[in-house]
């Protein structure tokens, strides 16, 4: 055992000196920079951003052709269909969330910064949602027209998807963090994450269904919001722990 007594005053001196040197907005600066960096990175690789959106549009376009152009039939299946397609599209893009950083060593560096890892992970998830979840939510009403979704449910569709995909991104990021060290983690990621997606899917599609039936979708939206709040509270820590486990392996 080293002599702790004689060394601790020096340590205290060091930390306080460092505390004085570090600017107050340290975490905010780091978060903002991480957000901006990931946005710039994805904007320079547009295909990665467009992939899930194109997938979503294709699935929704093919359904009326494959099943039947009958508006009544389409309107019945539209809420579930839109939600399932959006969920799969979001899942599709998850694998690359931490993969690039893992491959080029940035993830190691992210883990070794003095900033709290859960917050940095949250910044990365926020970028994922901004570039997949949010565009999916904005696209969905347009695709809803193709499925002759009854008027009056478009806003609820967009809001439910915006809330829901945020939860999906957060939950999915835990799976992505756990499988980032595996060379073929894609299938495993889907298996890990899909069961946790079910509640979001039920209440998301339920909200749109309720809006169509005129039942008032607010209760469903409130539950989606509650799920998001829960995910926001717990997922960042789970993501950080999962990243640590992956780097350890």
């Amino acid at each position: 055992m080293p002599n702790t007594e004689s060394l601790s005053p020096a340590t205290e001196g060091r930390t306080s000196a460092r505390g004085a040197r570090e600017p107050a907005g340290g975490l905010a600066v780091a978060l903002w920079a991480t957000l901006r960096r990931d946005l710039v990175l994805l904007m320079r690789r547009r295909s990665e951003v467009l992939n899930p959106l194109v997938f979503f549009a294709l699935v929704i376009t093919l359904f009326p052709i494959g099943i039947s152009p009958d508006p009544d039939l389409l309107a019945t299946i539209a809420p579930g269909l839109l939600w399932v397609a959006a969920l799969l599209a979001a899942l599709l893009s998850l694998d690359s969330l931490f993969r690039g950083d893992f491959d080029d060593g940035s993830l190691e560096q992210l883990l070794l910064t003095p900033q709290p890892l859960p917050m940095l992970g949250l910044a990365k998830v926020a970028v994922h949602w901004l570039l997949t979840g949010l565009p999916l939510a904005l696209m969905a009403p347009v695709l809803g027209i193709m499925l002759s979704l009854p008027a009056g449910s478009y806003l609820v569709l967009a809001v439910s998807l915006a809330l829901g995909t945020a939860s999906l991104s957060l939950i999915g990021a835990i799976g992505a963090a756990l499988t980032v060290g595996l060379s073929r983690g894609g299938v495993l990621l889907s298996l890990l994450v899909l069961p946790l997606y079910i509640p979001v899917l039920i209440f998301g599609a339920g909200a749109v269904q309720a809006a169509i039936l005129g039942d008032g979708a607010l209760a469903h939206l409130a539950i989606l919001g509650a799920l998001l709040a829960l995910a926001l509270m717990l997922a960042p820590w789970a993501i950080a722990a999962s990243l640590r486990i992956s780097i350890n392996g």
Binding site: P23, D104, P114
Partner: peptide
């Protein structure tokens, strides 16, 4: 580490700016 932790799609300046920010320094 072994991997330099440099993003290929970013310029050296942008790469370093991120590391500066991670250290809490604008």
């Amino acid at each position: 580490g072994h991997a330099p932790g440099v993003k290929a799609a970013l310029t050296p300046q942008e790469n370093l700016a991120w590391y500066q920010a991670l250290a809490g320094d604008s």
